[in-house]
Amino acid sequence: MPLIELNRINKTYHLGDFEVQVLKDITMSVGEGELVALMGASGSGKSTLMNILGCLDRPTSGEYWLDGEEVSRLSLDQRALLRNGKIGFVFQNFNLLPRTSALDNVAMPLSYAQDNPSEREARVRAKEMLERVGLGERIDHEPSKLSGGQQQRVAIARALINRPRILFADEPTGNLDSRTSVEVLHMFQRLNQEDGVTIILVTHDPNVAHYAQRVIHIHDGQIAAGIYDAQAPKGEEGQA
């Protein structure tokens, strides 16, 4: 059974009398340990789909099976719990807490964790995680004193702190230059291959999509070009 399975997912927004159908009968699945890229034109519904996949939003209709559980009808609190334990998010604009040290930023999700680690344990885990993303030297730096690439690595450390099964990244390289983009993408690949984290990333950029094992194209809220294996790009670390 795949880790993620969508069955005829629809999402409709109501704007006054208007009805905007953003997602139309999306059916797809992502297996455990995959690295998938979501591509599509602006406004095609990629972020909307990501929000549903990330349990931040609920579909208007359809079924969403995550890790053997139908999650589209879960309550607010249940979804919060799910996000905390199984899902990590990486955003285009990093979304770090301002005037808060890298360490505290990374440790933040632990305050909402179910196992509720002690303050000391939380610091140890956050430090380990920062070391893993190569920022062991900068644990006390505030976001304003870090470069964009470093900030995104802090954000990745934060996403991984609760050891999630799945990582969602909405345009993670959108605010980075090409060199740091490559660093971040390599990190994703390593996480995917060494730790078996399932990663779904949204991008406009075909070069970024090349790092994925598989690309899903979305066009006007529908899966367009089907599902195909991106054979060539894998391992080919060209100019992203």
Binding site: L56, L76, D77, N84, N95, P109, S111, Y112, A113
Partner: peptide
């Protein structure tokens, strides 16, 4: 607040 909710804060938190 949005970020905290995304990483698992419940409304009660």
């Amino acid at each position: 607040i949005g970020l905290r909710m995304a990483v698992g804060a419940r409304p009660s938190d």
